[in-house]
Amino acid sequence: MDKKSIEAILKDYHWMMNSIKLLRSSMIDAGDKLTAQYGDEAGMPKAKGGSQSDPVFQEVKRREKRLNVVRKYEDKVKVVQQRIHLIVEEREMEILHWLLEGKSLRWIALHMGLSLSHVKRLKDSIVEQLANGTNGTNGTNGTNGTYLPKEKSVV
């Protein structure tokens, strides 16, 4: 996944999670309120298919479309959730969690006592690691992902 996509997901993560939670709870609530019909109503003929004038059918269609949108949100959220383990540095992890809570970079900088530009650099590092699927500690000789050739001995 590319950096721009990861950055957009991090920015939108908080409200997407809220939408997922609200829709799931509303779908559960709607299912609890369904009741069976008894007596004369049970034997009466029902409308076939879903006519355009049937408000219940229209509501079902609307909710189905909404459910498809939320499934897309779930897929995006899972991308970040499955890659969180890649962030191992303590400051980066703290920044990532505040981003997922919907906090701004300015708020994070004030909260952590860091400069805004430093928080931006750390966020860029987080995005890089999540996009590449690697953490920043995989480099040779602890060089944060860069390759430095070993020094040759003079012997």
Rank of each mutant, 00 (worst) to 15 (best):
D29W: 02
A30D: 08
D32S: 12
D32R: 14
D32E: 15
L34N: 06
T35I: 13
A36S: 11
Q37W: 13
G39K: 11
G39S: 11
D40E: 15
E41L: 15
A42E: 08
G43F: 13
P45Y: 07
K46C: 07
A47G: 06
A47D: 09
K48P: 00
G49Q: 03
G50W: 05
Q52C: 07
S53H: 13
S53K: 12
P55E: 09
V56N: 07
R63V: 05
R63Q: 12
K65T: 10
R66T: 11
R66V: 06
V70Y: 03
V70W: 04
R71E: 14
R71N: 14
K72H: 09
E74F: 01
E74H: 02
K76I: 00
V77D: 03
V77T: 05
V77L: 04
K78A: 13
V80H: 01
V80M: 05
Q81T: 05
Q81K: 14
Q81V: 02
Q82G: 09
Q82Y: 07
R83N: 08
I84D: 06
I84P: 01
H85Y: 13
L86Y: 03
L86P: 01
V88C: 07
E90T: 11
E90N: 10
E92G: 08
I95C: 04
L96Q: 08
L96H: 08
L96G: 07
W98V: 00
W98Y: 13
L100H: 03
E101F: 00
L105N: 14
W107K: 12
A109P: 01
L110M: 09
H111A: 08
H111C: 05
M112A: 07
M112F: 09
M112K: 09
G113Q: 04
G113E: 03
S115W: 04
S117A: 11
H118V: 02
V119P: 01
V119M: 05
K120M: 06
R121W: 02
R121Q: 07
D124Y: 03
I126T: 01
V127F: 02
E128W: 08
Q129L: 00
Q129A: 09
A131K: 02
A131D: 03
N132A: 08
G133P: 04
T134V: 13
T134R: 11
T134F: 05
T134Q: 09
G136I: 01
T137Q: 15
T137C: 07
N138Y: 05
N138H: 07
N138T: 09
T140V: 12
T140S: 10
T140Q: 08
N141A: 11
G142C: 08
G142A: 12
G142M: 08
G142D: 13
